[in-house]
Design a protein around this nucleic acid. Sequence first.
DNA 1: TCAAGGACTGAAATCCAGTTCACTTCATAT
DNA 2: ATATGAAGTGAACTGGATTTCAGTCCTTGA
Lengths: 221, 221
Amino acid sequence: MAYRRTQQIEERLADRRQAIVKAVRRVAGEVGFRDAQIGMVAAAAGVATGTVYRYFPSKAQLFAEALAANSQHELNVVTVIADGEGSPMARMEDAIRVFAVRAVKAHRIAYAMIAEPVHAEVDVTRLEYRRAFGGLFQRLIDEGIAAGELPAQDSAATSACLFGALIEGLIGPLAPDTAQSPQESGLIDTIVAFCLRAVGAVPARSPGRIARLRPISGVSR
Amino acid sequence: MAYRRTQQIEERLADRRQAIVKAVRRVAGEVGFRDAQIGMVAAAAGVATGTVYRYFPSKAQLFAEALAANSQHELNVVTVIADGEGSPMARMEDAIRVFAVRAVKAHRIAYAMIAEPVHAEVDVTRLEYRRAFGGLFQRLIDEGIAAGELPAQDSAATSACLFGALIEGLIGPLAPDTAQSPQESGLIDTIVAFCLRAVGAVPARSPGRIARLRPISGVSR
DNA sequence: TCAAGGACTGAAATCCAGTTCACTTCATAT
DNA sequence: ATATGAAGTGAACTGGATTTCAGTCCTTGA
C-alpha cells in the first residue's frame, strides 16, 4: 500500500466540497438556478465538470444541499431574533425587519433560494425551509394571541400569507429593485408596517428601531 | 388553381388553434407545466405532434399564449368587480374574495399559471399579468386612500405584498389543501380579513357577502 | 372525376444539459 | 526513486424532449 487518506487530503476534500457548494450559491446569485449548469458551477469552483460528481451524486442533490445550507443560515439568524427577549410583537417586528433587510441586500440570491423555479427534487428541500419559516412566524402569532396582543385568528393561514407578502414585496418580480439603498427607500418600513397591520397588531413603535440593535452574535456570515 | 381558403377552412383552423391552447390548459391543470409535453398536448387536442407546430412556432410560445389567455380571463373577472360600484374597500374585498374563490377552486391550474417553473420565455408573459394584477390592486388602494378609507401608504409596495399574501395563502405550498370545500374551511374569510387589515382598512362588513352577489355577467367561463 | 395546393402526420433528426469513464495527475509509503 | 491507489479531468455518451419534414390525406374548383 502506498496511498493513505492523510489529514491533509481529508481537509482538501472537505474544502473542495465546500467550495463547490459555495460556487452554486455564487452562480445562482448571478444567473439564477435556471441557468446554473454543472459546468458553470464547476468552473466557478475551479474544478472540472467530472469532479463535481466525485462529491455529489447529482445536480439535484448538490443544489438541494446548497439551498439547505443557505436557508438554514437565514433561518438561524431569524430564529435568534424570534426567540429573543421582548413582547411577541416586538420580536415579530424585529424578525421581519431582519429578514427583510437581508433579503433585499441579496436580492438575486434570495429570489433563487426562495422563489425561483427549480427541479422537483430541490423543491422538496425548499419546502422544508418554507415550512420552517412559516412555523416560526406562526409561533410568534400564537404567542401574540396568547399575550392578548393580537386578535384570535387562524395562525397557520395567516403566517403563510405573511410569508408570501414578505417574499413578493421584497424579492418578487413586482418588488422595486432597491439593492443599492434599501434602507433609504422606505420599502422595508412599508413592508414591516404591512405585516404588523395584517396580523392585527396595534402600531406602537417607531420604525427603524432594529438599526440600533447591536449585531447578532454567532450567526453573521 | 383548385385550393382556396374557404370560410369553412378558416373556421376549422381557428377552432383547432383554440383547441390546442385549451389542451395546454387542461394538461397543465392535470400534470402541471413541468410534465406537459408537446405530445401530450397534441393528444389532448386530438391532433398529431407535428400539427401543433403548424399553429405555434415553439412550445414556449404556445405555453405563453395559453398562460396569457387564462390570465387575461381571470384579470377580466376581477377587473369587472374592481371597476364596479361601491366604496373602494367594498370593491377590494369583493375582488379579493372572487380571486380567492376561483384560485382555490382551480388550485392546480392556478399554481401552474402563477408559480410553477416554466421556460424563461413563458415567464415574461407571466410577469406581465402579475403586473396587471398588482396594478389593479394598487389602483384600489389609491382610491381607498383618496376616499379616506385607508391611511397613506406606498401603494405599489403594498399591492405587491397583497398579491404575494394571496398567492401564498391560497395556492402556495404552505396553503392547506381545501379543494374539496373551500367555502366551509374559512380559509378565504381568513385571507380576506388578512388582506383588509394589511392595507389598513377598518373591518366593517360581515364575511361571506360575495356569496350573495348575483353572477358576474359577461365574464364567466 | 381529377388536378392542385395546403393541412396533417408521426417517425426521425436534432438539441441540450446531466452524467459517465478511460485516462492522467498527484500524494504517499516503501 | 518508484509503486500504489485515489483524486481529478473533460471529451464522449445518454436520454428525453423539442422540432423538422417527406409523404399522405383533404378540400376545393374546373
